[in-house]
Structure formats: structure tokens, C-alpha cells
Simulated scan of single mutants.
Amino acid sequence: MPVSSKRSASPSSTPRRANRSPALQVLARGGYISSGVLHLLLGWLAIRLAVGSPSGSPDQQGALRQLAAAPGGAVLLWLTAAGFAALALWQLTETLVGVPGAESSKQARERIKAGGKAVLYGALAAMAVGVATGAAGGGSEEGLTADVLHMTAGRWLVGAVGLAVVVGGVVHVVSGWRKSFVDDLQGTGGGAVGQAVVRLGQVGYVAKGVALAVVGGLFVAAAVTADPQKAGGLDDALRTIRDQPFGTVLLVVTGVGIAAYGVYSFARARYARM
């Protein structure tokens, strides 16, 4: 019987083709635009909270609800969800086949980072769909943390999650300070990266890192004290910043920084390495 000359596709061939798909690359760049819109709204909500006139919960879901209330909000929400979903799929392909341009010695670390981003963007896409369909909701951070704390080794699990988020925040701050995020902008993006984009990235990464570190700190506090009421999301983190000495100023600066990250995300849609 003649042996077929065709080789069966390798397990990684499908994600590799998806990773190289121009259509997916364009859609994934749209995901960075979605991220920009979300962070601009988060920055605005944080500033509103600082000046004492909150107009919604200063977290991702609150920002998406603000977007829904805008003219054409339903369409904008679905476009935002599509952008995040495409970006999640892009990060998933990098998790499976490797990150282009990364050194072989760093591939394992880069794949783990890509996997984490895939989960994050997938969650944001699901949240946007939930707001668009009116199905958004779910348990609060305190309720979910209480459930975990009652599990065997629950305090250790909550503490580990909190520490991981703190580390993520520190990584953001260091990346902004050292401008190491610029490496993500050099590659297949269009044109040279200007200093304005770099400065926006620096401010945005530092501000976002501070907010993440506070969120992680709240979960660590909940684990140490076994008190789920101490846990919280981004809205609780921003209120914690507001309640510190000179908290109003600190929160305004944080809000401006988060908004700067949003503008930087628009630039990343053009310059990001794909």
C-alpha cells in the first residue's frame, strides 16, 4: 500500500497558524484599543472618587457600565468584548507555541506571562458581554474570599493570590521605572516609538502597579487576619488610597496615571510587537 506523502498536522500547527494570522493580529490590536478605553474610564472614575463626586464603581465593571451608558454604548460594549476576546486568543496562541522574539532561555517565563494575560483578557471579554446582556454580577471579592477561607489551607491560598498580585504590581512599577515595557513595542508595529509614548507608558505602568499592589495587599490582609471583609478589588484599593494622608492628591495622581496607561494602550495598538 503506498504511503501518503502528506504529513499529519502537528498538535501545535493550528495555534501556530492562528498566531501568524494577519486577521487575528489586527483584531488583537483592537484589544489594546479596548484596554485603552477601559483604563481611560477607570482613571476618570478614580478622579471622580477623589473629588467626592463618584458616578459609578471605580473598577472594571463600573467602567464598562459607564461605556454602556454612552451614546451607542451597546455597540461599543460588543466591540470592546470582541477586542478583549481576540487579545485573549492571541495570548493563548503565544502560550502554546511560544512568544516571538523572546530568547529561548526566557520562553518558559514568557509563556507563563502570556497564559496569565490570556486569562485576564478572557475575563474582561466575559465581563463586557455580561454588562452588554445585563447578566453582569456575581459574588463580591469579600464573599468569594470568605468561601475560600473556609476551605482547607484557604488562608494560604488567599495569601498566595494576594502575594502574586502584589508581585504583579511591583513588576509593573519596575517595568515603568526602567522602561522595560518598550521591548513590547519594538517589532511588527508601525513606525518608531516616540518619547511621548514612552513617558505615558512609564506613568501608566507605575500607577497601575501601585493600584495592583494595594489590591494584593488587601487579600494578604484578609488571609493574615482570616477576615474576608478586608479583601477587595480595584474599587476598594482606590478607596484605600483615598483614605491615606494626602489621599485625595494621591488618588488624583493615580487616576491620571491609569488614564495615561489608557492613552499608552492606544499607542500600543499601533506599535505592539505581534
Rank of each mutant, 00 (worst) to 15 (best):
S5G: 14
S8P: 00
S10G: 14
S12C: 04
S21G: 02
A23N: 06
Q25G: 09
R29K: 15
I33Q: 06
S35D: 04
S35C: 05
L38Y: 01
H39V: 00
L41A: 14
W44I: 08
A46L: 07
I47P: 01
I47W: 06
L49W: 03
G52D: 12
G56T: 15
A69I: 06
P71V: 00
G72Y: 05
A74V: 03
L76M: 11
Q91C: 12
G98N: 05
V99K: 01
G101C: 08
E103R: 13
Q107E: 13
A114V: 01
G115A: 14
K117R: 15
K117L: 15
K117G: 06
A118F: 03
V119I: 14
Y121C: 12
Y121E: 09
A123M: 11
G130M: 11
G130P: 02
G134V: 08
A135K: 12
S140N: 03
T145D: 06
A146H: 01
L149F: 04
M151F: 02
G154Q: 07
L157I: 14
A164M: 05
V166G: 03
V166E: 08
V171L: 12
V174R: 12
V174K: 10
W177Y: 09
R178Y: 01
R178V: 07
S180I: 09
V198H: 04
V198C: 08
V203T: 08
G204F: 00
K208P: 03
G209L: 08
V210F: 02
A213T: 05
A213E: 02
V214E: 05
V215R: 09
A221Q: 13
D227R: 12
L250R: 13
L250C: 04
V253F: 07
G255A: 14
V256H: 04
F266D: 05
A269S: 15
M274I: 00
